[in-house]
Amino acid sequence: MNTFAFMIHPIEIGDIARKFGPLGKLPPRLVESLFKYAPPLKVSQITGVRSKHAQTEGWFVACPITSRLMIDLPEEYVIKKIIKTGKLAQKLGAKILGLGAFTSVVGDAGITIDKNLDIAVTTGNSYTVATAVEGAREAAALMGHNLKRCHAVVVGATGSIGRVCASLLARDVHALTLVAREKTRLEELAHRITYESGVAPRITSDIRHALHNAQIVITVTSAVDTIIGAEDLMPGAVVCDVSRPRNVSREVAEKRNDVLVIEGGVVEVPGQVNFNFNFGFPPGMSYACMAETMMLSMEGRYESFSLGRDMSLQQVEEISALARKHGFKLAGFRSFERAVTREQIARIRENARHALNTPRAK
């Protein structure tokens, strides 16, 4: 039997209280501090993943550390906790382990974890890139944008996901801006993209300046707090937020009816999948990183696929081909845990048109 496991962790303190109700009565920071000493958990069994070619089943396993603690605690401590959770996946019978959320970015992005386990490991980043760019392209078209005339911005461009997203977008858009903190790495990436595509990206560490005239934004940083607010975006902007925790503030949804924010990497899983755990998605849908783990298992490819920070376009194209083979596909659009219909997108598009044609008050 093809088997897999996928590692999750509490994104924020409230996630612990929702899973373990009585803990919600304690002070949140106390709960967070206590929970980090808990052992790894088997959360649920996943069944019903099936295509016309193969099937698989697996488990959610949880590493009991919040996103904030994964940043604040010593890296060695965090990696040991992740490895211990991976050992639980091995014990359950998984043959490949997917790393979710911050477990995929701490340290060397899965390489050390892979070396300390007897099963294959993937971050799922290759299919996350594929679906993020596909989603951004489709959403931009629905918003009436011609990609060849668009200015696109990639926030977190020097990360493993951001680099490949930038390379893919460079093939389609008129102008590209890369945003990250380290100037040297930005310059190296910009030079490579220019060589590959002929597009000469701008580079900056100033997010707000980069965003003020961007029609398309893909944001994929490891920031714990939101970094994009309601005043940062132009009317009609399409923002694909791949990060967890989110990079885009919820106030964008509350205050800007002329901007489309979508979640990156929401995928329809083939078969009659039952996750036996509510992680905020409708039935039958998963994150792209989960989907990559499943499709590698269905192929019997128990190899470490997306690891480290040097992901290639070839990997993205290869995993996209596996997705087509087994019937994994982009599952429409979601924004802040809710589905976004084409009718809603049409209203956002009209609001943006009106905002762009209305002179701003001085």
Rank of each mutant, 00 (worst) to 15 (best):
I11T: 11
Y77F: 04
R181Q: 01
N278P: 03
T66I: 11
V273K: 01
P40G: 11
G264E: 01
F4P: 08
K81Y: 15
T3N: 04
W59Y: 14
A321D: 05
V49I: 15
V179Q: 08
V261S: 04
G98L: 06
G265I: 09
E268M: 04
F6C: 04
T158I: 14
A331M: 10
S297R: 02
A94F: 03
N276I: 10
F277W: 03
T56N: 01
N351I: 08
N2L: 04
K329W: 04
N116E: 14
V155W: 01
G300I: 03
A38E: 03
E254I: 15
V179R: 08
R360D: 04
L313Q: 09
F102T: 15
L296D: 13
V31F: 14
L330T: 06
F277T: 05
K84Q: 15
E317A: 10
C289I: 02
F277Q: 08
A17L: 02
G332E: 04
E299N: 09
S205F: 13
T85D: 09
H145S: 09
E182F: 05
A132P: 10
A190H: 10
T103G: 05
I193G: 02
V269N: 06
E182M: 03
L30P: 03
G124L: 04
I216R: 04
A132S: 09
S222W: 06
G100M: 02
F305R: 05
T184W: 00
H9F: 09
N2G: 00
K362D: 02
R338C: 05
H354F: 01
F277H: 09
R50S: 11
F20D: 06
N351G: 04
T293D: 03
S167A: 10
P235V: 02
R50K: 14
A157S: 12
A139I: 04
T219N: 07
T103N: 13
P27E: 10
A140G: 14
L41Q: 13
A288Q: 06
N213S: 15
E254V: 14
I111H: 13
K115D: 01
T123M: 12
F275Y: 12
N213G: 10
A62N: 09
L322D: 03
I193C: 00
T194N: 00
I11W: 00
I207W: 06
G21V: 02
E76S: 06
R244Y: 14
N116T: 06
R68E: 13
T184S: 09
V31H: 11
R353V: 07
A291E: 05
A120P: 13
R68D: 11
N213V: 09
L211V: 00
L26S: 12
R246Q: 06
M285N: 11
L296C: 07
E268D: 05
A101G: 12
A166Y: 07
K95Q: 12
H151P: 05
V217L: 02
Q45G: 13
T219S: 12
A17H: 09
S312L: 07
I11G: 10
Q344H: 12
A214D: 07
N276V: 10
R301G: 07
E317K: 13
A94V: 08
T112K: 02
R192Y: 00
G264K: 03
E138V: 07
V340Q: 08
K183I: 09
